[in-house]
C-alpha cells in the first residue's frame, strides 16, 4: 500500500504529455476500431504499445497526431486539445515504412523539410539538419539520395527527419520492422538514450522489453492492460488470450 501511494505521488508530480479521454474511432459508421480509450502518458516516459494485427495501434497513433478525427472523445497534447488537421510540431510520427516519409532528392532536403515548414530561418534549418543527423549517427549520409540507402540507413534518416522538428513527443510505428540485427541493435541503443517522450508500437516484444518502462496492451480497439512490461508480457494467460506470445527472454527467467 505504501509502495502504491509513493508511485502515485511520483506520477502526479510529472507533467502529462498525452491524454486521451473516452476516445472512440469508427471507420464508416459501423466498424469500430477504437473503443473508449483513456490514457495518460507522462513527460519523458517510454511506452510500448502492443497488440495483434488490427488491434488499432496505428489508428490510435494517427488519432493522437490529429490525422484522424475521433468519432467521440478528445485528445490533448502538452495540455492543449488536438484539432484535427492542425500542425503540431511538438509531436512527431515515424512511419512504419521509411519510404513513405522520404521523398526528396537528397537526405539534406528531406530533413530540412519539417523545419522549413515551421518557418525557421535558413541558418537555423541548417543547424537543425546537422544536429538531427549527428544524433542519429548518420551525418555522413547528408548528400546521399534517400531512395538509394539501405533499410537501416533509411530508418535512421526517417527518424532524423522527425527529430529535426525537435518534438517533445515521438511516436514510432513498428520501427524495427525489416531491420537487420545490427541496425536493430543500433535503433534500440538510440531509443534507450532518447530524451523525448516516446511511444513505440511494435510486434518486436524484445525491443519493447529493452526500451520501455511501461507497456499498453490493445485488443480490438480496447486497452486490455497497462503497466510494467515484465508483468504484462510475462503473463502467459493474458498474452495468449490476446493473440500474443510471451517473449522468449521472459519464458527462460521463469
Amino acid at each position: 500500500m505504501k509502495e502504491l501511494t509513493r508511485t502515485t505521488k511520483a506520477l502526479s508530480q510529472k507533467t502529462v504529455d498525452i491524454t486521451a479521454t473516452n476516445l472512440c474511432f469508427k471507420y464508416n459508421q459501423e466498424h469500430s476500431v477504437l473503443t473508449d480509450i483513456n490514457l495518460s502518458i507522462f513527460t519523458r516516459e517510454k511506452v510500448g504499445l502492443i497488440g495483434a494485427n488490427g488491434a488499432g495501434k496505428t489508428t490510435l497513433f494517427l488519432a493522437i497526431c490529429g490525422i484522424l478525427t475521433p468519432t467521440y472523445g478528445e485528445i490533448k497534447i502538452c495540455a492543449r486539445l488536438v484539432n484535427p488537421g492542425e500542425f503540431r510540431p511538438e509531436i512527431g510520427l515515424v512511419f512504419q515504412n521509411p519510404s513513405d516519409q522520404l521523398f526528396c532528392p537528397t537526405v539534406r532536403d528531406d530533413i530540412a523539410f519539417g523545419p522549413e515548414n515551421m518557418g525557421l530561418s535558413p541558418e537555423i534549418v541548417q543547424e537543425r539538419v546537422n544536429t538531427a543527423l549527428s544524433l542519429t549517427g548518420v551525418s555522413h549520409l547528408i548528400d546521399r539520395i534517400p531512395h538509394h540507402l539501405s533499410g537501416g540507413e533509411k530508418c535512421m534518416v526517417a527518424i532524423a527527419s522527425v527529430l529535426a522538428m525537435q518534438p517533445q513527443i515521438i511516436l514510432y510505428d513498428e520501427p524495427s520492422a525489416n531491420l537487420d540485427l545490427k541496425a536493430r541493435r543500433r535503433l534500440i541503443k538510440f531509443l534507450q538514450a532518447s530524451p523525448e517522450t516516446i511511444v513505440i508500437s511494435s510486434h518486436d516484444l524484445e525491443l519493447i522489453l529493452e526500451v520501455c518502462e511501461r507497456v499498453i496492451l490493445l485488443n480490438q480497439g480496447r486497452v486490455i492492460a497497462d503497466g510494467i512490461p515484465q508483468e504484462i508480457m510475462g503473463d502467459r494467460n493474458l498474452m495468449e488470450n490476446n493473440n500474443l506470445e510471451v517473449p522468449h527472454s521472459l519464458t527462460h527467467s521463469h
Partner: peptide, 13 residues
C-alpha cells in the same frame, strides 16, 4: 495517401 500524411505531419500545407 500515406506519403501525403507524412508530409502533413511535418507541417506541409
Amino acid at each position: 495517401n500515406t506519403m501525403e500524411r507524412a508530409m502533413k505531419l511535418r507541417g506541409f500545407d
